[in-house]
Each structure stands twice: as structure tokens, then as C-alpha cells.
Design a protein around this nucleic acid. Structure first.
Lengths: 135, 135
DNA sequence: GTCTATGCAAAGCTTTTGCACCACT
DNA sequence: AGTGGTGCAAAAGCTTTGCATAGAC
């Protein structure tokens, strides 16, 4: 099976201590995490916020991580299994997330292509307040 | 017919010079505009960037303006006609926009509701590079 | 006259960049 | 040994806040 570290090797990325830690946190997280979330979950001083951002960028480029844009413009990071395209229902407050295993992105992008758009991407997200947070 | 100024009155907002200018620009725009876009379209010094942000926030709260989140987290503003819910195909570079007059938001929000989420909202956007910009 | 809206200045927050040092392969 | 990754410090970019003044009703 392909764990996080194998995926680093597949992507020809070096297996460093910070990356091990980041993947470990992402794997055990029950919801998407912000850069700050990741930082605060680490032993204090064990890695820098910059390293988190740089790695999330690299991971996203290699499809190891999926980036979620919140309504506020802030971003969350989630481990992205190969071929596991999906969307989310996300709590605005605690970021508790429900997977949406549907996607009309294909049709949308076909439409966009027919309009002359290239290099396509799409976002489909539902934002709300979960029952925990609204209680 | 309900032009921008009437909509201000309906919302019990004061009809000020800055607001007239902002609505005028939004009405004549052929694509969603950023705060900076709006500023640069105004006679220099005729209003402040802060005024633009404050009004976009107020307008959005009253449904006069629709906010679009780009992949980068930046936001664009577009006039929002009453009852005119729709989504977009947006060029990452020039922000040229094609309306998507379809929306599965209803079903998505129903699903979210059944999962205990309240105060719902959703985003469906397609990003790409338009034929002008990729040429 | 009252209360909202604006301008200016300054701060806030997330994210990015530069550069020297470190460490994975 | 060589290249890629990390840390620290600093900057950048967009957006927000505070406060006194101006302007709409």
C-alpha cells in the first residue's frame, strides 16, 4: 500500500523529518487542517510555518494534498488519495467535514472548454455550521 | 425597474456619491471586478479603497453584490440581480467570465442539512484561462 | 440635528521571498 | 559531494479597524 512516505519517493521528493511529521498529522487528522493547525499540532519549534507552506505547495503540485479554499480566502489542507476526487461540506467554525462523493466537474469543464477556456480546474464546496458548533 | 440606487433605498442605505460611483462601475462592467479594479476605474482620489471594501461588504450583506472567491483567495465583486443565482467560468488572468446558469446548490444544501449543517452557502466555480489570455 | 458613511492612517493576518545553513541521497 | 530542503527574518498583499470629520436624511 502507498503510504505518505512512498508517495514522496514516487514524486522524487526527499524524505525529510518535517515531511514525515506533516504527513503523519495529515493522515491522522479527521478534518482538513490549516497551516496554523499543523504548526500547533507539532512539538513546539520542531518546524517552521514557512516549511509548512512550502511543503503544502509542493504536495499540492504532486497531488499528495488537496487545497480547500474557505469563504474567507484562507486555505485548508487535506491528504489526497490517488484518483480520489471529491468535494466537501465544511463547517465554517471548526472545519468538520463531510465528503461529497459526487462531482459534476467533468460536465462543467467540458462546458468551459467549449467556451475556449483551457487549463481548467473547479471548486464545489458547501459551507455551513455543523451541529456541534451551532449547539 | 430597480436600478442600483433604488436598491440602496430598499435596503435603507444612504445614497452617497461613492455608492453611486461604485454601482455605476459595477453596472457597466463586463466582468467581476476586484477592489483594486474599482479603485482604478474611478477618477483618482474620488474615493478610498477602504470605502470600496466597506461598501462591498454591506452590498453583499444586502444581496446587491455577489462575492466571488478566486483560487488565490482574492475576491471579485459582481452586481447581483434579485433572484439571479448563478455560477461562473472565470479566467484566472483577466477575469473574463461566462455565466453558468445551472446550479445543483439546492441538492447540495439539502444534503448538508440532512447532515446537521445549518446557515448554508455554496460555491461552484470553474477556473481556467480564456482564449484571449492563452493566445 | 442626528446618525451613517467616508477618509486617512495604521494594523492585522495569511502567505511569500531571500539567503545562508543543513541534511537527504 | 551535490542538490534540495529548512529556518530565520523580513516583506508582500489583501483586507480590516479606529477615530475624527463630512454628508445624507
Amino acid at each position: 500500500m502507498s503510504n505518505g512516505i512512498d508517495r514522496l519517493r514516487e514524486a522524487k521528493l526527499r524524505v525529510t523529518q518535517p515531511r514525515r511529521q506533516l504527513l503523519e498529522e495529515l493522515e491522522s487528522a479527521d478534518r482538513p487542517l490549516s497551516a496554523e493547525d499543523l504548526l500547533s499540532k507539532m512539538a513546539s519549534g520542531s518546524l517552521d510555518l514557512v516549511t509548512i507552506y512550502r511543503n503544502m505547495t509542493v504536495f499540492a503540485e504532486h497531488g499528495i494534498v488537496q487545497v480547500i479554499q474557505l469563504e474567507s480566502g484562507k486555505q485548508l489542507f487535506e491528504l489526497h488519495a490517488v484518483g480520489d476526487h471529491h468535494h466537501h461540506i465544511i463547517c465554517r467554525e471548526c472545519h468538520a467535514t463531510v465528503r461529497l462523493d459526487l462531482c459534476f466537474g467533468g460536465e462543467l469543464e467540458k462546458l468551459a472548454k467549449s467556451q475556449g477556456y483551457s487549463d481548467l480546474n473547479h471548486t464545489i464546496e458547501v459551507f455551513g455550521v455543523c451541529s456541534q458548533c451551532s449547539a
